[in-house]
Design a protein around this nucleic acid. Sequence first.
DNA 1: ATAATTCCTCTAGTGACTAGAGGTTCAAGA
DNA 2: TCTTGAACCTCTAGTCACTAGAGGAATTAT
Lengths: 137, 137
Amino acid sequence: MLSIGDLSKRTGVKVPTIRYYEQMGLMGAAERSEGNQRRYERTDLERLAFIRHARDLGLDIPAIRDLIALSRHPEMPCVDADRIAADHLSAVREKIAKLQRLEHELERIISHCDGHSIEDCYVIRALSDHGLCDGEH
Amino acid sequence: MLSIGDLSKRTGVKVPTIRYYEQMGLMGAAERSEGNQRRYERTDLERLAFIRHARDLGLDIPAIRDLIALSRHPEMPCVDADRIAADHLSAVREKIAKLQRLEHELERIISHCDGHSIEDCYVIRALSDHGLCDGEH
DNA sequence: ATAATTCCTCTAGTGACTAGAGGTTCAAGA
DNA sequence: TCTTGAACCTCTAGTCACTAGAGGAATTAT
């Protein structure tokens, strides 16, 4: 049996975060010691690693909750799990595209600046006057 | 003189957001009518457009506050303004790189899934077992 | 036995807004 | 001039995924 601190050390997930995951229904109520402290087993370790991994991939808590629910029904087809991942992938792609537009706009603004005075600063001027922009943000 | 609603319509910034910008020190306290309602002038319209534009480019409120402060000193050199933009650009590039790593990992996970049962679902398996991953997230 | 560490719950803070309650002022038509 | 309805005011609380801290109880090590 592991304490919450042990679990934390082994997974790299901070103690308050583990409690937060429990509260959000990702971890399930842990057993308790006589003195009301959480005790975990090996399966909890795996579960937490699963959650952490999914979070690292950027999945949000409701999505992870869904994946956990699905993983409890091994006989079901996995289209739902695929869809969660695919939806997330397209969201990630959209974010990338958006950030790339920003990147280009910022590059352009910075490169036009001659570095002299604020008065002539292209950074400030471009922010003041949307007409100086390239894109359509 | 414009009411806050007029300002909102002309800039596309929602009314509560304008009040929020005032609270955050981006907008400066507006004049008030006899009945305590905010009244704006043409310069406020430009200021708000500046803020909105900077936000669209992803700059955060402290950065925008700094840029506004700088824009009030037209004779100063603009290295500071450039640096704010350049710092933001590198932050944007880091985000892009991170998201691209996610993109590839998600693509890989999804493409490996045969779409049959949860039991064999690569999405679920990859989340459970970090060893199946390519990258080092 | 005592001290140090870890644990418990609960509340509040992060950023950039957004939504709503409860009440006041304004502008336009009768 | 009066009335109605829209727009305005302030203040509080909610969003997301945590993180930090208070104040106190349990556990572990010496």
